Amino acid sequence: MRPARLRLLTASAVLAAAFLGPAAAPGTALADTPAPAASAGSDGEPPAPTEAGTSFRTATAVRPGQQATAQASTGDYLYWQFPADTGDRATVRATVELPDTSARSAAATWRIDVYDGLRRRQACRYGSDRATLAAAATSVQLTCHLRTVRGWAEPWSNDPLPGAYYVRVTAVDLGASDSGLPFRAALDVSLDDAGSAADTDGRLAAPLVQGSAATVEPEDGWSSGWWSARWLWTAAGAALAALAGIWGYTLTRGGGRPAGVPGPAPGHRP
């Protein structure tokens, strides 16, 4: 092939690629790009659990803000766990639904219990942690507002400490003939920040989390253990004390003589 013809064919190929390239590229990209995988949720977090554990060791982890659900039979114990850090005020709500009312012979009492990382039962500040479901009723709600989690406390105080918290929902005072009936439970946990009023001087070396259980952590991680708003108050107090000392010094040196007080007479020597 002659050099002139070869150069002509090469130039034609380059022009064809220049015109056809932009049109063909989108089709190629769509064909080679895989479809995005379905996410767990709109915010990227894992979905809420749909089952519960049957003991402390098998408690299902739930994040604050999620609504966990579970199917069980009356007489079973349902266990969940959630993390609570220093300064958190947790509110635990549970709803129990029994679809079949004709199978129940009498009323039943349902109860929600919350335990800390040492498995000490924590008292509710207020709320209905125990409620009776009438034989003709289909649902009952339980609520427990916990005390503020402290960064450190004496062992005998039973104060809530940072770490894992376990929720147990079960029926008590249940008739023998009503045991084993199916029910559905829903649980949600919310956390409120108590602010600097709950700060203490001491801190735990580590949160109370059982090593064998998979506990979710707070979104921002566990508190570092050394910082609190008390540092701000201490710094502000030190600054005010320094300013007061400077002001007092200027008064004693005569630079801040109060108004209306005459100064020494001219030519007078003390």
Rank of each mutant, 00 (worst) to 15 (best):
13 A>K: 09
178 D>C: 03
65 G>L: 08
240 L>F: 06
246 I>C: 12
123 A>W: 00
39 S>D: 05
3 P>Q: 07
209 V>I: 15
239 A>K: 14
234 T>W: 12
244 A>I: 13
83 P>W: 03
82 F>G: 08
201 D>V: 11
256 G>F: 02
250 T>W: 06
168 R>L: 09
236 A>W: 10
174 L>E: 00
174 L>M: 03
43 D>R: 12
57 R>D: 14
186 A>P: 03
236 A>K: 13
171 A>V: 00
230 R>C: 04
84 A>R: 03
212 S>T: 14
179 S>V: 09
210 Q>P: 01
65 G>P: 07
76 D>T: 11
59 A>S: 13
140 V>Q: 05
25 A>C: 12
223 S>L: 14
170 T>Q: 07
79 Y>G: 10
4 A>I: 11
95 T>D: 01
54 T>S: 13
165 Y>R: 02
239 A>L: 15
63 R>G: 02
257 R>C: 09
57 R>V: 13
117 G>N: 05
157 S>M: 05
131 A>I: 02
5 R>S: 06
1 M>V: 11
36 P>L: 06
1 M>Q: 02
75 G>F: 04
169 V>G: 02
103 A>T: 08
226 W>H: 13
156 W>V: 06
209 V>R: 12
60 T>L: 09
254 G>C: 10
62 V>G: 03
214 A>L: 13
263 G>F: 04
61 A>H: 04
52 A>P: 04
11 A>H: 11
253 R>M: 14
90 A>K: 09
141 Q>G: 06
156 W>K: 07
55 S>H: 07
201 D>N: 02
10 T>K: 13
19 F>Y: 09
11 A>D: 02
90 A>S: 14
231 W>R: 15
101 T>H: 07
155 P>D: 14
183 F>M: 11
142 L>G: 08
154 E>Q: 06
153 A>M: 04
192 D>K: 13
248 G>W: 13
197 A>F: 01
172 V>E: 07
169 V>D: 01
155 P>R: 08
212 S>G: 12
267 G>I: 07
87 G>K: 09
225 G>N: 08
252 T>G: 11
242 A>I: 12
114 V>Y: 02
89 R>W: 01
18 A>V: 12
101 T>I: 08
191 L>T: 03
264 P>Y: 02
85 D>W: 01
71 Q>T: 13
230 R>G: 15
163 G>Y: 01
178 D>R: 01
90 A>T: 08
191 L>Y: 03
66 Q>L: 12
114 V>C: 07
15 L>Q: 13
187 L>S: 05
206 A>G: 10
37 A>Q: 10
132 T>Q: 03
265 A>Y: 00
73 S>I: 05
261 V>D: 06
147 R>K: 03
168 R>I: 01
245 G>E: 01
68 A>Y: 08
14 V>N: 04
53 G>P: 10
201 D>M: 04
215 T>V: 15
259 A>R: 14
118 L>F: 00
31 A>T: 11
188 D>L: 05
74 T>V: 10
222 W>S: 14
138 T>A: 15
270 P>S: 08
53 G>I: 08
78 L>N: 04
5 R>D: 09
13 A>N: 06
65 G>V: 12
51 E>D: 10
191 L>E: 09
125 R>P: 00
205 A>I: 11
30 L>F: 04
141 Q>P: 00
24 A>E: 06
179 S>D: 03
